[in-house]
Design a protein around this nucleic acid. Structure first.
Lengths: 339, 339
DNA sequence: TTGTATGCGTTATCAC
DNA sequence: GTGATAACGCATACAA
């Protein structure tokens, strides 16, 4: 990759490097003719600024880093899409890393990003992460950090998420209003705030409708394979609690796993048992029966997270302090055939 | 982001910058004691090398760029996952850009990557792309480029893809062997080689089984919304060709769109009409009826593309010429209830 | 309006 | 074994 530099243009035109640089950057103190000459020559010589040099000089990389548990989940890839689109508008590049729900990997990925002097970091915590020193250290060093989706109350930085508790409450309340009384919950792993909150929403709804909470109706999905989690837990549930009349699951894919098992067993939805998912990925409307679900705005979550990050980067550049934002995105219920 | 530099360590230890640098990089001409002292101090001072400076100096960025039509498609996000994982093993970072199936955006993304001096580029062409000067220019400048999935014969660089023609042939042959005779094809847009090849495979299979080709049975899916494409074309098909007994679709999501329409219309699969998809995303096994599909190894496609790119980067660094590779990944048929 | 000088943080060559 | 010194390509304060 032989690339032409400012020096090359300067030599070619018999001018100084700084003249070229200034002309290319549109400084006002260069005469119109020379500017145009320089612009034309740069174009002709196929000049492309060397970003490493620019970065070193300007102390910024115009690049942000993103750490997600996995890029393969529909939900995260939509978020990524939102981030990438927004970054482009601001002239930023996006480096994407996956933690595979592993704390140590997450830690290393952040280090990598720091080493690459990204201007800011967007992160959705891994399921394992319950200590946050690795993130705090970055924040203390002045790195703008925004948490999204999988956040934590223990970090005082900007966050973008939904109100999981309220959303879960609404879903379960909807089941209750339809007359379901023996409602199981297939919850997420124990650490992430989202699964805690959805569980609490479930519990609260039961309480408000005077249904005694039965811990044995709560099944944990922690295999990092939502479909299998759903399938296997549905099997377990049918062995242990034949009287259950509805299930509220932590994700749609878990629900789809449940549906698969029920289909294999000829258990019909919603006649024998109702099903409520979470996330409203597009398949929810397509499976048979179609799946009721909580809609959460993935693309916007990415977009807004990025916007906030860019604000913070900008503030930080002008040495302003900016208060951390805490954005709660709206959710809604999509009622379909499964309940 | 105040960061400690070699200079800081040097001052702290009353040594020269070059000594620090060499010690940190494990050069042999530094005494054991000083090396250990330096290592410890660097650790203690929280030293993190400035990648921009390293990049500028070493003329490489240890970063590769990826351009995909969209990160949201399950197929691409799996590929990305494969790329990111592999890159990590090689110590590379991955910048991801989307072209949104738009030629001009694709062009700009490549320019961006070039500007950032990525060490190599992985690209899956947009549906619109039928000129390749933007890629050729990069290649001529010495940028290692590997095409994956959406490739073209008109570029002489390494490629990783499947044999779409053969795979489509196998799918249609399977339908024919089951006795279906009036088989429609919901094809992809006209430009991409993958949709051309799958169409040709379809046509060839018909020919080999002495079924006259009927162009009116071929519907084009070009709305950039596979589900809707499937749904709408199914509707059209039912208006125009009630006698069709099977459909072979360009992707699984198109097939799912078809299923949705049939479900709405109480047309049953496979009794009234059979359905064969392409890609075998995990939902294929989950929908009702489960969908027969051509399995293609997305994760491996990403992984292998990255491997080849790293080989080429390595070769290029040592100024070796390396012949472009043309990797065809194996596919297989997943036969399920829909046929 | 243009050019000179300096430094960003690192690596690498060459003295000592 | 250690330390000057220059260079990577660019941006900018300052001089001319």
């Amino acid at each position: 990759m032989v690339q032409v530099t400012l020096r090359d243009i300067a030599d070619h035109l018999n001018m100084s490097v700084s003249t070229i640089s200034k002309a290319l950057k549109g400084y006002s103190d260069i005469s119109k003719e020379t500017r145009e000459l320089i612009l034309a020559t740069a174009e002709k010589m196929n000049y492309v600024p060397n970003t490493s040099a620019v970065n070193l000089r300007t102390r910024q990389t115009k690049t942000i880093g993103v750490v997600v548990p996995s890029t393969e989940h529909q939900f995260f890839s939509k978020i990524l899409s939102g981030i990438i689109d927004e970054a482009e508008k601001f002239g930023y590049l996006v480096i994407i890393l996956q933690s595979n729900e592993n704390y140590n990997i997450e830690k290393r990925q952040l280090q990598l990003l720091n080493q690459n002097r990204v201007d800011g970091i967007l992160i959705s915590l891994s399921n394992e992460t319950h200590r946050f020193a690795h993130i705090e250290k970055l924040m203390e060093a002045g790195m703008p950090v925004v948490l999204f989706d999988k956040t934590t109350k223990l970090l005082s930085c900007s966050k973008v998420a939904i109100d999981d508790r309220k959303a879960a409450y609404a879903a379960v309340e909807c089941l209750l209003k339809k007359g379901y009384r023996r409602i199981a919950h297939f919850r997420g792993p124990h650490i992430p705030q989202v699964s805690i909150d959805r569980f609490l929403g479930y519990k609260q709804a039961l309480a408000d409708y005077n249904i005694p909470f039965d811990a044995s109706l709560v099944y944990v999905c922690d295999k990092n394979d939502d479909f299998k989690d759903g399938y296997d837990n549905a099997k377990l549930l049918m062995q242990e609690h034949k009287d259950v009349d509805a299930i509220f699951t932590i994700t749609d894919v878990v629900a789809v796993g449940v549906m698969k098992y029920f289909k294999d067993m000829k258990i019909s939805i919603p006649e024998d048992i109702a099903l409520f998912g979470f996330s409203n990925w597009f398949m929810a409307g397509v499976v048979t029966p179609s799946l009721s679900s909580v809609d959460q705005p993935a693309f916007d979550m990415g977009k807004i997270s990025a916007q906030i990050l860019f604000e913070e980067i900008k503030a930080q550049k002008s040495k302003q302090k900016i208060a951390p934002r805490d954005v709660i995105l709206p959710t809604s219920l999509k009622i379909r055939e499964s309940i």
